[in-house]
Each structure stands twice: as C-alpha cells, then as structure tokens.
Design a protein around this nucleic acid. Structure first.
Lengths: 149, 149
DNA sequence: TCCTCCATGTCAGGGTGTTGACATAGCGAA
DNA sequence: TTCGCTATGTCAACACCCTGACATGGAGGA
C-alpha cells in the first residue's frame, strides 16, 4: 500500500504537493514545539510580537492570517501563562497593545531554535541558491493567486 | 498597513511562505468550487475516486490525508447528493467500495476544469522548466520532513 | 480447529477555527 | 457640534476535524 500502486497523476499536481509540504511542515513544527507546550499559532504570535512589539489583537490576527477571535484566544492563553502582557485599559482608542514578558522572550528564544532546526532539516537538500529560488517561486505563487495585486 | 511597514524577516522564511501559498491556493480553490457547492475535500474525494474507482472509505482517507471519520462524513454528503454510490452490504470483508455515479462524473468534470484554471493562474509566471523545478523542490521538502524515508 | 492480530466502519466527545452580530471609541465631513 | 464611517474587542453559534473507543469480518499461526 505504501506507494507501489498506481498513484495516478496526483503526485504531479503542484497543488497537491503544496498541500503535502505545508502539512508536513506544520506537523513537524507541532511535534518540535510540543515539549514547550506551544502550538504553532502561539509560536507565530510570539514571533510576530517579538519583531513588532505593541501590536494590537486585530493587527496580530492580520499578520498571522487568522480572525480576531482566534487570535484573541491565542493571546489569552499566552497571557494566562505569563508570556505576554496586555494593559487592561486601552491607552488610546480601543486597541490593547501586547508585549512580550521576559518569560515570553525566553520561551520564544528556545522555540525559535527548535523551529529553525525544523526548517533547516526541510531545506537540507537545497543549496543556498536553490533555497532562494524556492523562496522566490513561492512568493510568485502567492502573488499570482492574490486577487488585489 | 498593506505592506509598507517593516514586515520583518517573516517574508524571508520558507515556512511562512509555504503556509501562505498553501492557504492562498486553498482559498482560491474554495471560491472557484463554491458555485458547484463542493468543498475542497469533497472535490479531492471525487478526483481520487475517479482515478482509482472502488476505493474503500479508509483507503480514500489515507489518499487525502484525513481520518476515516472525516472521510466518512465527506462520502456521506456526496452520497446524499447522488454523486457517489456505495453498496449497503460489503461484497467481502467490511470495506464498502465507493464509485462515482454519472452525475458525480459530470460534476467532477466541471470541477476539475475550474481547479485546473486556478492552478494555471498560480503557475502563470513560471516556465515549463520552472514548474517542474518547483514540483521537484516541493517533493524534496516533503521527503526531507517525512521521518520514515 | 481455534485463537490472536489486523483492518474496517461507526459512534461519541472535545478542540479549534470560522461566520455573524453587537457595543464602543476615534475620525472626518456637513 | 453632530452625524456617519471605520476599527476594535468580545460574545454566541456553528462547522470541521481529530482523538478515543467499540463491534465486526478476515487472515495467519498454534
């Protein structure tokens, strides 16, 4: 059953492989982050927040491509674990700017190492030029699919 | 907000772009298939069933990388709409081989055209060689991430 | 023969993400 | 000033998929 049968032209479809690759990466990241009790969305949130501190819930949601509601749950979980702080009252407007706590920064550091390890494993068979090419190709796919260019 | 701000090194991460590309493709396929009242898993099921008729629920699930339970729901929906037939009693063993009905084949034909259109749009900026290279690169990523080589 | 192991289909429960909706706070034009 | 318009945070309901579990049917070894 493994792969001896007639697999059909599915393996020749870019869409099929794209999904397979994304799923494999997601699974690998998930298992790598499990010892830290971090899900992939939680890690993504920490990473974005580290690069752009003070982002509001809605801005974070847009950056990670989820809804505000989902990001709110993620943020609340991180908040309860003391990895992220959010003021109880909005400094101006309604946006509550989130920031990493020192514990959050430490957790992110180890998590980032693990994730980078996974990416390195995935990109092992590539040369530096090949990696850049893949990056460019994926970006081209996204651009071609995005309606409002 | 669009993309003028400091996006940080996120756009340089292959994992990030992989996820973005897969999400964009999924969304595009979903909107393309919406007029036919087909979800992406339903379409995938029809496509696999067309290439390998008589597959059982469990085999279909493995082919599409979902659980038997999820595939069972998909299959039941397709069955209720008359696109797929499944015998009520197993010819042998417990497996119930599924087959496309003529209506299912017709629906798949138009759906397949729409999906192919989306893929064509995504691959527009690529040459034939570039497309093959992308295919090969994605397969390499999957292989590098899959534990049991 | 009988018995153990494996695969299949199915049911129940939980987790996670989404859509829809609502109240509130700032901004800009009449 | 006052009236929309937009954006934000939050609640509820729903859908989807997964993990866990169970009963049944076949195959292979003692």
């Amino acid at each position: 059953m493994s792969q001896g049968e007639t697999v059909g032209p599915l393996d020749l479809s870019v869409g099929y492989l794209l999904k397979r690759a994304a799923t494999a990466l997601r699974t690998a990241m998930d298992t790598a982050l499990r010892p830290l009790d971090l899900t992939v969305p939680q890690y993504s949130c920490l990473e974005v927040l580290s690069q752009r501190p003070g982002l509001s819930n809605a801005e974070l949601a847009r950056a990670v491509f989820v809804t505000r509601q989902s990001m709110n749950l993620v943020l609340r979980g991180l908040q309860d674990r003391g990895l992220v702080t959010r003021p109880t009252t909005a400094p101006q407007g309604r946006a509550l700017p989130s920031t990493l706590t020192p514990a959050g920064r430490a957790q992110l550091r180890t998590a980032s190492g693990l994730v980078r390890e996974v990416e390195k494993r995935m990109l092992e068979p590539f040369s530096a030029a090949g990696r850049d090419g893949l990056l460019r190709d994926l970006a081209a796919c996204v651009d071609a699919l995005t309606p409002q260019e």
